[in-house]
Design a binder for these strands. Structure first.
Lengths: 167, 167
DNA sequence: TTAAACTTTCAAAAATTATTGAAAGTTTAT
DNA sequence: ATAAACTTTCAATAATTTTTGAAAGTTTAA
């Protein structure tokens, strides 16, 4: 496998992996491309490399910026905007974990809390609903707590400390 | 909120959450329904409750069984097949984590390993590709290791021990 | 102020994914 | 062996999500 093949394989794998961390293919591919680029890229560069339209590129770059994963770089003397992504994997993991907690886990916790708090009318079905949503609420809460703890540590904690803990 | 409202809210929230843990809406809703049911349900029951077709129910039940989350129950004297889901949230979390590791994380680790092993031809782009995919490989490996450690512990370890660790 | 260079928006089209329902398949009881 | 009771399959359809591209918008230089 040479550079070109490796690059393509990485971008396409990372792209199809997008769903795992809750973003779409183009968004994941743009991030992947920036992640292995040695310098910031313009919209043209990205469109060209990934063979996607201007609109698609624009919208997905915006989303990546919303996530806090990609930043605009101003290059002096250049009219175009250039983009680059967070290059440190630890920091990247922290950002993704934090955003997913905020966007997806927190709202679910809210619903589970609400549902598990309905009045117990003595019916066995009601009892089961309360019991199970409560259990789910506790689990989700614990997991979210974990994630946020990890997320608020500074870099290297993840590899260094967790590796030790779980040995 | 009464029982019916609570039940519906739970099922629909859990359903739309399906994407977070990598399964589709109907599949997640069937699991949710079984999760709060006090007894095993037949295909008819599920179709009726969720207003989905026979084919859809059949296919999604099969997938849930593939995941190891749902099991067929034989009820003596009954011709129909009945289904029930794992009721323990800890066990459920273990199954899901294990399956996702196997289905999604492991294959990505394989690709990252391959790409990060390409020959360094001295070009700065090649160097960056190797460096970044290697970093991602290490991170993903660590995370997968963590997940599998958690997954191989017996129940209650998650809440009890991790809560302590992360305090 | 104007025009060139560039980016964003968004309705329409394309691609993907999920769902239906009826025919085919299977199992069980007699 | 037959038929009733039930489940699975899968081609067609529907729903959803993604992508396009051109018009509208913005910024900069002169």
């Amino acid at each position: 496998m040479n550079y070109k093949e490796g690059k393509e394989k990485f971008i396409s794998t990372w792209g199809s992996l997008g769903s795992l961390w809750g973003i779409n293919k183009a968004m994941a591919q743009i991030q992947a491309l920036l992640f292995i680029s040695t310098k910031p890229l313009s919209m043209e560069d990205i469109m060209e490399e990934l063979k996607i339209s201007r609109g698609n590129t624009s919208m997905n770059l915006r989303q990546l910026m919303d996530w806090g994963i990609v930043t605009k770089e101003i290059i002096p003397g250049e009219r175009k905007e250039y983009f680059s992504t967070e290059k440190d994997v630890q920091e990247l993991a922290r950002i993704v974990a934090k955003e997913r907690s905020r966007r997806e886990i927190k709202p679910v916790i809210k619903v589970l809390k609400e549902v598990s708090s309905i009045k117990d009318d003595g019916n066995e079905n009601t009892k089961e609903l309360i019991k199970q949503t409560q259990a789910l609420h506790e689990l989700t809460d614990t997991m979210d707590l974990m994630i946020n703890k990890v997320v608020n540590q500074n870099q290297n904690w993840l590899t260094k400390s967790l590796l030790k803990l779980f040995k």
